[in-house]
């Protein structure tokens, strides 16, 4: 079997203190290979915590994570990264500013590249150039430019390339277009769709835009208080409208989906 299985994930932060917070509460999720799942939920619902659990940024209290048949629950974060790509909201997080575009890509590619003495070499560079050309941002002619000189959108596009360059089994996108201006955000989202389709990636994407959550991918889950309260896919999802989604959430979670940062349209 391939894909991702989350079995009974549980995490309490600051356990045993008055600040104890139940961040993940019995999260079960079966992700099939090739699934593109959008993740919705208000602030503090546990979306990013779920991603961090998958990435191994902390130890779970209980539960198991199985990626492509391999139990990775106890694997260190950098070892999991061999098969998991991740992109965050902040474009600065995914790239090294004082290194060139080429060096950044070479570093990200290291895990799957053939052995070579120099990190930047001709053969890999040709490959990087072809990947950059597909972004259509003119970066293929600026491979010796320092990453820090690029705009936020360009850096996020480069980060997207870096997260997917080693053909991960799973791609996690944590509101990766939220910090960009609308036009750039749309461009980066288009690139994301293109790369996911081309590489047939299994993907989880956190978004706060309900409309695009329903439009993108093949499945949508909604989280609340560390639980998955709604999980729709297939024909049911195709017919689902945003008001219906809100209605379903109210029934399942027993409260309104707080719309402080949510975009309805």
């Amino acid at each position: 079997m391939s894909g991702l299985s989350l079995i009974g994930l549980k995490k309490v932060f600051e356990k045993g203190t008055p600040n104890a917070k139940l961040a993940l509460d019995q999260v079960n999720l079966e992700v099939a290979s090739g699934d593109f799942i959008t993740v919705l939920g208000s602030n503090g619902a546990g979306k990013s915590t779920l991603f961090n659990a998958i990435l191994g940024k902390f130890r779970l209290d209980r539960g198991k994570i199985i990626l492509d048949g391999e139990d990775i629950t106890r694997l260190k974060d950098y070892k999991r990264a061999y098969n998991i790509g991740c992109l965050y909201q902040n474009p600065l997080r995914g790239t090294a500013p004082n290194m060139t575009i080429e060096e950044n890509l070479a570093l990200a590619y290291t895990r799957k590249a053939r052995k070579s003495f120099f990190a930047v070499n001709k053969k890999d560079s040709e490959y990087f150039r072809s990947l950059l050309r597909e972004l259509d941002l003119g970066l293929e002619d600026r491979m010796k430019t320092q990453m820090g000189l690029l705009s936020g959108g360009q850096r996020q596009a480069a980060s997207l390339l870096m997260a997917t360059i080693a053909e991960p089994k799973l791609l996690l996108l944590d509101e990766h277009t939220a910090a960009l201006d609308p036009a750039t955000a749309e461009k980066v989202l288009d690139l994301t769709k293109k790369i996911i389709a081309k590489r047939q990636l299994t993907c989880l994407m956190i978004t706060h835009n309900m409309q695009s959550a329903l439009a993108l991918g093949n499945r949508t889950i909604v989280m609340d208080s560390g639980r998955i309260v709604l999980d729709v896919s297939g024909a049911e999802r195709e017919q689902l409208t945003v008001p219906q989604l809100l209605q379903r959430f109210r029934e399942n979670a027993g409260k309104e989906l707080s719309a402080d940062r949510m975009l309805l349209g």
């Binding site: 990264a81 790239t95 500013p97 290194m99 120099f118 990190a119």
Partner: peptide
């Protein structure tokens, strides 16, 4: 500092999180 090991050291000083995300032991 232009070999893979050397570049990983440079990247660790520049953005350690990115090095971990690239599956390198920072």
């Amino acid at each position: 500092f232009h070999t893979r090991t050397g570049m990983a050291i440079r990247a660790t000083g520049d953005n350690e999180e990115m090095v971990r995300s690239s599956s390198i032991n920072a």
